[in-house]
Design a protein around this nucleic acid. Sequence first.
DNA 1: TGTACACTTAAGCTATTGCTTATCTATCTG
DNA 2: CAGATAGATAAGCAATAGCTTAAGTGTACA
Lengths: 118, 118
Amino acid sequence: MLNKPSQLDLTFQALADPTRRAMVERLSMGAASVGELARPLAMSLPAVMQHLAVLEGAGLVMSEKIGRVRTCRIAPGALRGVEAWIGARRAEWEMRLDRLGDYLNENKEGGDGNGASE
Amino acid sequence: MLNKPSQLDLTFQALADPTRRAMVERLSMGAASVGELARPLAMSLPAVMQHLAVLEGAGLVMSEKIGRVRTCRIAPGALRGVEAWIGARRAEWEMRLDRLGDYLNENKEGGDGNGASE
DNA sequence: TGTACACTTAAGCTATTGCTTATCTATCTG
DNA sequence: CAGATAGATAAGCAATAGCTTAAGTGTACA
């Protein structure tokens, strides 16, 4: 039951929350402290820290504490995994459509004019 | 408290589960019935149906029932929203790196040879 | 030193998730 | 019609998510 989540699970899960996406959006325009990150969000600071922990756990965000302020930034290659997965699905999907196109072309001359789906 | 989730929330949330991603992977290679979808998954059929409902709710999958078998397929443009969001983040991020590059270049002649991060 | 600031940790509470089993409801098919 | 098939619905349950408030822990600065 305690099957540990994959990297992809963590990333998608992290991005599924609008607050966390807002944080990523903020950070993709430049580094920010926890306080700066929290200011526009209508929730307590501990809540923001928990979101931050999720983002770090997913490898989307890195942070470093200097003095008493923790500075957060987007992790390099953060979205690579998600992009790869989506790309792969797209590739399969388009390949399939190509094969369907080939099939339709091959059967065009002489076939019945049926617009069959699949 | 019952703030309705956005399309993007639903999509990321749907893809955050490995079972649901497996279903999408299966479907991106071709349409399948609920039973076919369920067979390789180590869980009850109702569980699969619930996952299917999530995928449909997110607009990732469509299905149509004919006779007693429901056939599922990937919804066209399913991943467009996610791709757009990721693309936007990437764009901002790269723009920011460009500006940093400009800054470093402008300060290269005469500056100290520091390989500063940020 | 004292006090404010910027986080951190801990505990607790509700709603949602991801299952389960049990019980239908429609199709087929012999 | 009597099964068997393919799926649908309902109820329930343990675990997790997303908050909250209250009470720390270090830093900074006068």
